[in-house]
């Protein structure tokens, strides 16, 4: 576990030194929100329509912005043969995967935290701190599922020439079990339902996260083998 944290710390240090991935994702997610808020300008006064549209818009922004970052996850490792250097270290190969999941989760979740205030303003929401915390929990569980699968597929597509195209094609179908309960739970939170109102969606997200983390952990070694 400690070696995974070293890998995550190294990735975060490199990322926040240049902020290339973070800035790209943030700008993309903000652009999506702005474009949708302009497109839905006529409906923004009608709270019932906003409640139906806004959760989907939020997840579209986060999913596609996250994919920008995920496609770059192993690029840093493939430059200068660093992935080979990691494979030479006396650690289980799955430690590399866990480290990447940690660092991706921090970067994507941070991007989401920065985006949320813009979402609240653009879609005319007024949320109390309890609702914000619950929204944070939904986003965390959903993002974790997205990162768990996305990191594995990013490793799988690393050696392909069309990885930026291939990743969304492979990832989106596998993400449906995250996106559907994620959008529903977000809609529930924004409608003012408490924890009890979204407990079934949260359970689904947690089970998805656990199952796919266990499977990805087991198969990662084969994903990066020559």
């Amino acid at each position: 576990m400690i070696r995974s944290l070293y890998i995550a710390a190294k990735d975060l240090k490199a990322e926040f030194r240049t902020k290339q991935m973070f800035n790209s994702m943030l700008i993309f997610s903000l652009l999506v929100l702005v474009v949708f808020s302009i497109s839905f300008g006529d409906f923004l006064g009608d709270s019932s329509k906003v409640e139906k549209l806004a959760p989907g818009v939020l997840w579209v922004a986060f999913t596609f912005a996250g994919m920008l970052g995920l496609s770059r996850t192993f690029v840093m490792e493939s430059e200068n043969g660093c992935l080979e250097a990691l494979k030479l270290c006396p650690v289980d190969r799955s430690a590399i995967y866990t480290g990447k999941v940690f660092s991706n989760l921090v970067i994507v979740f941070l991007m989401e935290i920065v985006t949320i205030p813009f979402f609240i303003v653009l879609f005319n929401y007024s949320l109390d701190s309890g609702t914000l915390l619950l929204l944070g929990l939904v986003l965390l569980l959903g993002t974790l599922g997205f990162i768990i699968v996305g990191t594995l597929l990013s490793a799988l597509t690393l050696s392909t020439r069309t990885r930026e195209l291939l990743l969304p094609v492979l990832l989106l179908p596998v993400l449906l079990p995250v996106l559907i309960p994620g959008v529903e739970a977000t809609a529930g939170v924004l409608a003012g339902n408490g924890l009890s109102g979204i407990s079934s969606e949260l359970r689904l997200l947690a089970v998805y996260d656990l199952i796919f983390f266990a499977v990805s952990h087991l198969v990662f070694e084969y994903a990066i083998s020559d």
Binding site: K10, K13, A14, N80, C82
Partner: peptide, 17 residues
């Protein structure tokens, strides 16, 4: 692996560190 060090034509170094 603890006994092995490898030097390649690739640097195995992170440019941003």
């Amino acid at each position: 692996r603890k006994e092995i060090g490898m030097l390649s034509h690739e640097s195995y170094l992170y440019g941003d560190l």
